[in-house]
Nucleic acid binder design. Structure first.
Ligand code: MN
Ligand code: MN
Ligand code: MN
Ligand code: MN
Lengths: 225, 225
DNA sequence: CATTATTTTTAGACATGCCTAAAAATTTAA
DNA sequence: TTAAATTTTTAGGCATGTCTAAAAATAATG
């Protein structure tokens, strides 16, 4: 109904992300870390959001979103991902440049605007990082059969369908090594010593990817080698 | 340098609009009316903006923008008008629907975004209401030889080049009567009694426009009738 | 299970931006 | 040019969202 502050919206969004698909309770410290604030600020805000029936909160027990809270969170995520898509597809931004601007744009309050943008972009299903874009009713189609590259089987060919956008450094690394969405990767070998992985892209020379990289890439199986 | 709050930006923008092209001092009450706040709030803010060297302020004497303040104000206006243009040209908004959303979008902080948008829109010179769009360096090209319809000579044909966007009701009225930018109007007669004006558009039947309408439309001379 | 260690909440403060009511300065007009 | 009207500023408060420091609750450990 009435509109929320940027801060409140950011809290809802982060609670949604942290609680994942399950209705897992989210801890105060967990939220504090993600929102770059102190635990005491989190407590203050949770009391307010609880008052507004947007989160279920029990002292010392963490919180989770109510239905209404989740509905709002999903709409913010919809806006965020549509704007990222606009920036990349229409304004030629790099995928590592869009997140910060989208953090601002996601708070623009206009249903007509976001639905028009959705149409203008031709109802995209995924954002530039491969994350699903909720539709106007809040439905999210998660990609089934998506696994982390680190879990992909040896001697299989997989396609990159998602990257974790949280780290700017990761996105730059991937860009630099041509590891973009749609790229097909041959998984050659895994090294238990440091959990790194040797891969090949097309007929380029073989390279080694660290655990930190492979656990932040989502892929889908294409074929055996 | 460092970024300003939405509120501070709105103050700068309104001071710019109120002081017009001259370096006219702006009064506290004048600002209060435009910003929908109380005079005391204006005083508070002017002291802060003065502290930051964005306005020149003398107690009881009103204020005007410093060079830096004006530079910032113009950039906000640039953003506002580019976003309005985007909404109308790309997302098919009506010209009466764009202002409120642009009021939000104008505060998004990203030079790269606004310059990309400018390019995407093909460097438009005027917004949907006929107001000039400042370029990235802050240059504003005002349309010369633009007069108010109310001042147009009898028996002349003029073209609508600008409408005052302040009133939503006016924009709806104009839309309804096909008085859009580019429309050519024949000025037939003026009535001193109520300062109304009889006009004709093409071969449509003659109509009468009130003072309130004609003083809020900007036109340029096309030809004698 | 008793004692630490960790997490979370409360208490008290501060900055921002706004308000009302009252005081002060300026403007208008008799 | 003095008195009244108007404008503007100050004083004191309130809500929001954040912080630090201290207290309380919960979790971990021997
Ligand atoms: Mn993002
Ligand atoms: Mn994304
Ligand atoms: Mn506008
Ligand atoms: Mn406009």
């Amino acid at each position: 109904m009435k509109s929320l502050s940027h801060s409140e919206e950011n809290y809802l969004k982060e609670i949604f992300h942290l609680s994942g698909l399950t209705e897992k309770r989210v801890s105060t410290n967990g939220l504090a870390a993600r929102l770059n604030t102190k635990a005491s600020s989190i407590t203050d805000m949770l009391q307010k959001l609880s008052e507004k029936k947007l989160v279920e909160y029990v002292k010392y027990k963490g919180c989770f979103l109510t239905e209404e809270g989740e509905r709002i969170a999903i709409q913010i995520i919809r806006k965020h991902r549509l704007w990222e898509t606009f920036l990349v597809n229409k304004l030629s931004f790099g995928w590592e440049e869009v997140h910060d601007v989208a953090e601002q744009l996601e708070h623009i309050d206009s249903t007509k605007l976001i639905d028009s943008l959705d149409r203008f972009l031709n109802y995209p299903k995924f954002d530039p990082h491969g994350d699903p874009i909720p539709d106007k009713d809040g439905n999210i189609v998660y990609r089934k059969s998506k696994i982390k590259l680190i879990d992909a089987a040896i001697n299989s060919r997989v396609e990159i369908v998602r990257v974790n956008e949280d780290s700017l450094a990761l996105l730059k690394f991937l860009e630099r090594h041509h590891l973009t969405l749609g790229t097909e990767i041959d998984v050659l070998e895994k090294f238990p010593f440091d959990d790194s992985m040797s891969i090949r892209i097309g007929d380029q020379p073989e390279t080694n990817l660290s655990k930190k990289v492979t656990e932040n890439i989502g892929v889908k199986f294409i074929s055996k080698l």
